[in-house]
Design a protein around this nucleic acid. Structure first.
Length: 354
DNA sequence: TCTGGGGTCCTATAGCCT
DNA sequence: TCTGAGGCTATAGGACCC
């Protein structure tokens, strides 16, 4: 019998907006929207809305122009990544003092395995929040549970500045009534599909059979839904991992119908990706070009090279070959390159043949 | 007026080989 | 020689996450 684990999930509250309000005190208590170039007339989406802005129904991923219509008096700011990364590193360093077993989840979230700590969950959570607040002036929401799923669901239950502890026994009462969309892994498509099956809540999802779920959502997703609805999650914490792909893409301010422009932009992107590959000390073998047309239809073409590369000229040549395979019958709004099948420099790419 | 950019993982399909 | 079953790889697309 393995002892029950204690996993903590921490989620910084409205991270980007909170940092801006902290460095610009005059913005505190006001609706702040961080996203894109900061110009709400340009193409871009909301990265983070402060809690004051959320009262206007503004949320992440909403087009900036829509957000501006909902709240013309709000303060719109560009994303200042380097600053947010600096704050994030400070927080992560502090977290790693609580436990050596930490999983980074993007810039503003992390899981910690706190099984080894003697103090009760409540005390650990409070201490962690207090240290984060002292070090950064920012608040965070913390959830603690027996696995990653319940820890994350817990941190989501009370926001901002919450601390929630969720045991396996609490699942039917506390998660059962929630809409399925609150489960990680349930996006708009799965939500709609479940609604077609007459399922709205996590409790109703838990009543579906495994075979029904597999039939509707495939093996991997079906199994996940079946377990998640019951609060079961055996995923380990991933304490380090290497990148699987690396890419760059841009959305044009105005749609483009000019192959020359597309080729020039793609060449630039390929150069940037090559530089990042060299920075990371990796090379890649498969080059994928993505095009999104004005009507939002998105297509990709890929080319696998004879061997891994991190050279701009090789990447550019492959990318342009991919570009040539797209029909240019419609205007283009986005173009991107991504390199996959990455290999650390100096490591053997493939095992020798038989 | 719409709808970013960085990723991950999964699935389906086609071609090739045994 | 023909046919079919699997396995493997490359490719394309889709859903989801922060």
């Amino acid at each position: 019998m393995g002892a029950v684990k204690r996993i903590l999930h921490i989620d910084m509250d409205a991270f980007f907006a909170a940092i801006e309000q902290h460095r610009h005190p005059e913005l505190r208590g006001r609706p702040v929207i961080v996203g894109g170039s900061g110009d709400p007339q340009e193409r871009g989406v909301v990265s983070t809305a402060s809690y004051e802005a959320r009262k206007f129904a503004i949320h992440s991923a909403m087009p900036l122009r829509t957000a501006f219509h909902l709240c013309p008096g709000g303060t719109f700011l560009p994303v200042d990544y380097p600053v947010y990364v600096r704050v994030s590193k400070k927080v992560k360093a502090l977290l790693s003092e609580f436990s050596p077993v930490m999983e980074d989840v993007g810039i503003d979230e992390a899981y910690l395995d706190i099984s080894h700590l003697k103090d009760p969950d409540e005390a650990v959570g409070q201490r962690l929040k207090e240290r984060v607040r002292k070090a950064t002036g920012l608040t965070a929401s913390v959830g603690i549970g027996p696995n990653k799923l319940l820890a994350k669901m817990a941190s989501d239950l009370q926001k901002p500045d919450g601390l929630t502890i969720l045991g396996a026994a609490d699942v039917p009462a506390r998660l059962g009534p929630l809409p399925v969309r609150r489960l990680p892994g349930v996006g708009p498509r799965t939500e709609a599909h479940l609604a077609d099956l007459g399922v709205q809540t996590i409790g109703e999802l838990a009543a579906l059979s495994l075979s029904d779920l597999i039939g509707n959502f495939g093996m991997a997703h079906g199994c996940w839904l079946h377990q998640a609805a019951r609060g079961i999650d055996h995923r380990p914490l991933i304490t380090r991992w290497e990148p699987k792909s690396l890419g760059r893409e841009v959305t044009f301010q105005r749609d483009i119908f000019d192959l020359g422009v597309l080729a020039r932009v793609l060449t630039g992107l390929a150069g940037e990706v090559a530089a990042r590959l060299r920075d990371e000390g990796v090379r890649g073998r498969t080059v994928t070009v993505k095009l999104r047309y004005a009507d939002f239809e998105t297509h990709t073409h890929a080319l696998t090279l004879g061997q891994e590369t991190d050279r701009s000229d090789e990447l550019r040549r492959a990318a342009l070959q991919c570009l040539a395979r797209f029909p240019l019958h419609k205007k283009v709004r986005l173009i991107g390159v991504r390199v996959t099948a990455l290999q650390k420099k100096g490591e053997t790419p493939c095992p020798p043949g038989p």
